[in-house]
Design a protein around this nucleic acid. Structure first.
Length: 508
RNA sequence: GCACCGCUAGCUCAACUGGCAGAGCAGCUGACUCUUAAUCAGCGGGUUGGGGGUUCAAGUCCCUCGCGGUGCACCA
């Protein structure tokens, strides 16, 4: 050690707080470089993917030889050796694997020794050799030569124990390596989102993009994230919904528009909520909420078909969920009245609502409007009774400021919520297009904001000006894309999002 | 935001009322030419989430901060 250069000493002291296994792997990397070999080559003579190999030679008899030489690359996920013959399971990541067999007779003493000394679990490796089947019938590449494709400096977790949820989410790359289901979710999500786009496109909808940075948040009741524009010298808001811009587009004659994009709401996270979440909103001129309910059901059914090939979904936990047919619609006030065996209407006095809430321990704030109390009661009494997908129809007017009054029932608006698996998957409306009434509602909301309701909408004069140009009668729907994935797979929202927001780790 | 529970080796987890910090996998050394979580022999690996306190003695008790989980609240 006395003639070790200063730089090497510096590295050694720098490694004092590095785990032993990482130090060892760093030294293996350095050994490769010292030998004039590459630890991270720029390209490799790959001839075929592991999936193609499986496809083509998957049914070889045990001990079969093909005489075909291939070059493949993948990650070593399992390795074992018997002295003069080494085996490694190489994974393409998406679940396909192939076995590499490195034998003394084929590669020679030095190459075999290097393999055993320098190849670790988790390394990306390239092997070239004949496609054969082992004595046990395992499809294998009988290696002529091998080289490092990318040296991994960190050990993989134990393959046969579940990583804890926090590690899976924080280090999704490891989760994707270890669990084919993690990759399957990413692929399922693409299929579902792609199905939504196709279904809407087939119905002559245009996909448009509206601002994520807004000078005032609107289109939903939620607290926004605030950011700042240096150039404009003003605060901007990350959008909480695209609604007000999509409606401007409809005013302008884009009769059928949709957007699939992220919304941001400055609120807590749990198994069904993420501060940033993907949302589909679509608007159709000359449609009402009933037509939108039909389209929404069809979109979900077409997405299920694209993802699962069936309208009967098998969830992650093995349970079956039938999405076929036409889904029931229940009336909010009617079903709640039935559930509590007492007639409830939009005219029911506040004192009655409050005592009903108190009776079942629903906490409420004095600032809450009557309709909100009714919705709370509904969630408590009726939602748990749902068995399949269910549309809840006709909500209180005071909780839906952007929705048109019901055409025949007083005190309620033409709004539905679609519940699947106990959570709200989508919501649809006959949109309020009367600019005078809209202004009254928004002024009322803005005054709530002045009274301290941080979720109330500020007055958007430009939106009102747009409506004053005449918006055709329209239906609108908002659907949580992450929640659609939850409904299709039975997984929690953080599993459907590849990289959900997590608080930073300390001491990093 | 509030309450409760948790944080120990690279990973998954043990460690009684405070009394020498351990196992499996992974790693290292050696053996083994058809293995499938290979096997056999041996060995190393820890600031017990951070900081402070009580105590002869703290993974364990107290305070505090961080992160996570669950429930509540808010929301889709």
């Amino acid at each position: 050690m006395s003639d070790v250069p200063l730089i090497a000493l510096a590295i050694v002291s720098d490694e004092l707080d590095v785990p032993e296994q990482v130090q060892i792997r760093r030294h293996k990397r350095q050994t490769l470089l010292d030998r004039g070999l590459q630890a991270y080559p720029v390209s490799l003579p790959i001839t075929v993917s592991i999936a193609q190999l499986r496809e083509q030679y998957g049914h070889l008899e045990a001990e079969a030889e093909t005489g075909v030489t291939v070059g493949i690359a993948g990650r070593v996920i399992f390795s074992r050796n018997t002295g003069k013959l080494a085996f490694a399971t190489i994974s393409a990541g998406s679940g396909e694997t192939i076995q590499a067999m490195v034998s003394l007779g084929q590669v020679g003493e030095e190459s075999l020794a290097d393999w055993k000394a320098l190849v670790d679990l988790g390394d990306q490796i390239f092997v070239q050799g004949e496609v054969i089947s082992s004595k046990r019938g395992e499809l294998s590449v009988f290696v002529d030569s091998w080289s490092m494709a990318a040296k991994s400096l960190r050990p993989l977790p134990v393959a046969h124990k579940e990583m804890n949820e926090e590690s899976r989410v924080r280090q999704r790359y490891v989760d994707l390596i270890m669990r084919p289901e993690a990759q399957a979710m990413a692929r399922t999500r693409v299929k579902a989102v792609s199905a939504l786009r196709t279904s809407l496109s087939n119905r002559d909808y245009l996909e448009i993009e509206t601002p994520m940075l807004q000078t005032q948040p609107g289109g939903a009741t939620a607290r926004p994230f605030i950011t700042h524009s240096n150039a404009f010298g003003i605060d901007l808001y990350l959008r909480i919904a695209p609604e007000l811009f999509l409606k401007r587009a409809v005013v302008g004659g884009l009769d059928r528009v949709f957007e699939i994009n992220r919304n941001f709401r400055n609120e807590g996270a749990d198994s069904t909520h993420s501060p940033e979440f993907a949302m589909l909103e679509f608007y159709q001129a000359y449609a009402d909420y009933q037509e939108m309910a039909t389209i929404t059901r069809e979109l979900i059914q077409e997405a299920a078909q694209a993802v699962a090939g069936s309208l009967t979904l098998i969830h992650f936990d093995g349970s079956e969920h039938d999405l076929s047919g036409v889904w029931p619609q229940i009336d909010l006030y009617g079903s709640l009245s039935q559930a509590i065996d007492q007639d409830l209407t939009p005219e029911t006095p506040r004192a009655v609502l409050e005592s009903l809430c108190k009776a079942v321990d629903i906490k409420f704030a004095p600032t809450w409007v009557n309709g909100k109390l009714v919705e709370e009661l509904f969630e408590h009494y009726v939602i748990p009774t749902f068995t399949g997908p269910t549309f809840v129809m006709d909500f209180p007017v005071d909780t839906s400021p952007l929705t048109r009054d019901h055409r025949s029932k007083s005190g309620v608006v033409e709004k539905w919520d679609l519940y699947v698996n106990g959570f709200e998957l989508a919501t649809g409306y006959s949109e309020l297009v009367d600019p005078v009434i809209q202004r009254e509602r928004l002024v009322e909301q803005a005054s709530l904001g002045e009274k301290g309701d941080k979720e109330a909408m500020p007055l958007d004069e430009d939106f009102l000006r747009a409506l004053e140009h005449g918006m055709p009668p329209s239906g609108g729907v908002g659907m949580g894309v992450d929640r659609l994935l939850m409904a299709l797979t039975g997984q929690g929202i953080r599993e459907t999002i590849l990289f959900p927001l997590v608080k930073p780790e300390r001491d990093q």
